[in-house]
Write a protein that binds this DNA or RNA. Structure first.
Length: 542
RNA sequence: GCGCUUGUAGCUCAACUGGACAGAGCGUUGGCCUCCGGAGCCAGAGGUUGUGAGUUCAAAUCUCACCAAGCGCACCA
């Protein structure tokens, strides 16, 4: 696609600065082009003059004026005017820039906004990775919704993305699970002397699983894990989240890679023996203390298999590894960074996203959850209650690292208060206009649209917001702030509703109608794309 | 006690990573249905960004100290 408006402004500034000694001293990223906060400041502005002022020993205002002159002397054809105020340089762009964008959107269709910035770089997003010891909870649901949307957006931005689920199918928890299932099984058969072990799993779901066991001699561990894993996969599919790869912890134990990589670390002197166990020297890489990898009883800790797992990830050749985890894992981040660094992988390229917990409300009433006794609201129950669209939207429309209040009542409401319905309603409305036009005998494709007829401020406002789609996506790629897309969509929907109420698209004026249909159609294209990236369905009717 | 995250309008949250007078939604107050779907729209009120200092031309954002909430601090996962 063509360059975004932002990039075009940056390009012209770079050109204007090419002979300036200041230019060689800065990084290109220091030229920040920001969207203006107020109309009188144009559509975009830069604060570059403040940075230049120091270097040139001038006032920002003077530096700004100088830069302005340089830019004007290049007479860029897309700029209407440039104003300097208090050192800020404000850009007012020609209306044609935005109108031209509408045709571009129609031409490129669903690939509009597709950024080349990923350049095919490989990214691995590991998320959910819930232990197969029970059904997925809403906490996992939020991670799932977030990870899935992030994957979609990164893919759209030109990255090669794999989604991976890591299955902890070994260790103490699984042993407890097996014992718990065994107890349930023999309890069902009416045999005495079987109790759920201490710290075991008391959830009702194990009773259901136990009912399916036909043979006293099954491996209870395996039976439980496979059953629960199937349920997890089913729930995720229903939620609309698919994984490209499921990796089992047991694999790394079976193929001896845990052993192998611990040997490697031993040779590097990053593993040492003390107090009867083997320690990984994570403190050498900024962790607050060293961590045990082989316990004194000879068994591995979770970290040991994670070392093998992350070495495996690195060897698969990813540029960036993204791990989406819950808040209970944040203490674990430094040691994993230490692990990858010890293998020569830049720890900056291992990114952790901590997704905070969700509190469920029913109106004002707070629903308490306790995983301990198996009383909790599962992802499945949530989906049954409010549906996958609303669930996904509510999960992603807040920053991942802030706590989320999820109101079940609100999510179910079919009114303006519910943002999901607000968006879907806007979508249906756009579709309806185009359908209405078609039925009135106006063929958008054949109509010769003169876009200069779009003169209403609301029309220009829509076009300008469409231009920001790419910037929004770029922002998400840089910050992993998926919620920005939800906000963008709400803003776009609002602008559209507002336009709709002030102006009719389909009128007796055929030329004007044609132009407005182009606008509506371009809007619909971007709108659908954004909804798709959030994995929210596009209803035909409501 | 130490570490991480959070603290912004009555409520739920934004603020493009240090930029101009901090923005939305809900709620509230007051308007708007002959018309492409009123499941919607418009307008108003509402703020010392937890507190106090510091750095900077510029701080919600960075630093430090307090205060408050959540989560971690295992030879658990």
């Amino acid at each position: 696609m063509e360059k975004t408006v932002k990039e075009r402004i940056r390009d012209v500034i770079k050109k204007a600065l090419v002979d300036d000694p200041f230019f060689s001293k800065i990084d290109e990223r220091d030229i920040s082009i920001l969207p203006s906060v107020r109309e009188e400041f144009g559509e975009f502005y830069t604060n570059l003059a403040f940075r230049m002022a120091d270097a040139a020993n001038k006032s920002p205002q003077k530096a700004a004026l100088l830069l302005k002159e340089k830019i004007i002397s290049l007479s860029p054809n897309f700029i209407e005017k440039i104003e300097v105020k208090n050192g800020f340089i404000n850009f007012f762009l020609k209306k044609e820039v935005y109108l031209g964008l509408l045709s571009e959107i129609l031409k490129s269709g669903t690939s509009f906004g597709h950024l080349g910035i990923g350049k095919g770089r490989k990214v691995l997003i590991e998320f959910v990775s819930a232990n197969p010891t029970g059904p997925l909870t809403i906490a996992h649901g939020r991670q799932a919704a977030f990870g899935d949307s992030l994957a979609r957006i990164l893919r759209y931005a030109g990255f090669e993305v794999d989604r991976e689920y890591y299955i902890n199918d070994g260790g103490r928890q699984i042993r407890l699970l097996g014992e718990s299932l065994k107890a349930r099984y023999f309890q069902l058969k009416g045999e005495e002397g079987y109790a759920i072990p201490e710290d075991g799993y008391e959830g009702e779901y194990l009773i259901e699983i136990a009912k399916e066991i036909k043979d006293d001699n099954v491996s209870f561990e395996e039976f439980a894990v496979e059953h629960i894993l199937e349920e997890i996969k089913k729930d995720l599919r229903a939620f609309g989240v698919n994984f490209d790869r499921w990796t089992r912890e047991s694999r790394f134990l079976q193929d001896k890679s845990v052993e192998k990589f611990l040997e490697v670390l031993k040779k590097e002197k990053l593993l040492y023996f003390a107090d009867g166990s083997w320690w990984f020297k994570s403190s050498a890489y900024g962790d607050e203390k060293d961590r045990v990898v082989v316990k004194s009883d000879g068994s591995y800790t979770y970290l040991a298999s994670d070392i093998a797992y992350h070495k495996d990830k690195i060897d698969r050749g990813y540029d960036t590894l993204i791990n989406i985890v819950g808040p209970d894992h944040h203490g674990y981040i430094p040691r994993m960074k230490a692990v990858v660094e010890s293998f020569g992988f830049d720890p900056e390229r291992l990114r952790f996203i901590v997704v905070q917990l969700t509190t469920l409300y029913k109106g004002k009433e707070k629903l308490s959850m306790s995983t301990r006794k198996g009383q909790f609201i599962s992802l499945k129950q949530l989906m049954e209650e409010v549906g996958p669209d609303a669930s996904r939207f509510f999960f992603i429309f807040r920053k991942a690292d802030s706590h989320l209040d999820f109101d079940l009542e609100l999510a179910k409401k079919k009114s303006v208060e519910n943002p999901v319905y607000y968006l879907q309603y806007a979508y249906v409305r756009m579709k309806h206009i185009l359908k209405f036009a078609e039925e009135s005998g106006i063929d958008l494709l054949k109509a010769q649209a003169d876009l200069s007829l779009l003169k209403e401020p609301e029309e220009l406002s829509i076009a300008k917001k469409l231009a920001r789609f790419s910037d929004t996506l770029e922002g998400i790629v840089n910050t992993y702030g998926v919620h920005l897309l939800a906000e963008y969509l709400l803003d776009l929907a609002k602008t559209f509703h507002s336009y709709y109420h002030r102006h009719r698209v389909v009128t007796n004026n055929r030329e004007l109608t044609a132009a407005r249909l182009v606008l509506t159609s371009a809007l619909l294209t971007v709108f659908s794309k954004a909804l798709e990236l959030l994995n929210i369905s596009l209803p035909e009717e409501m």
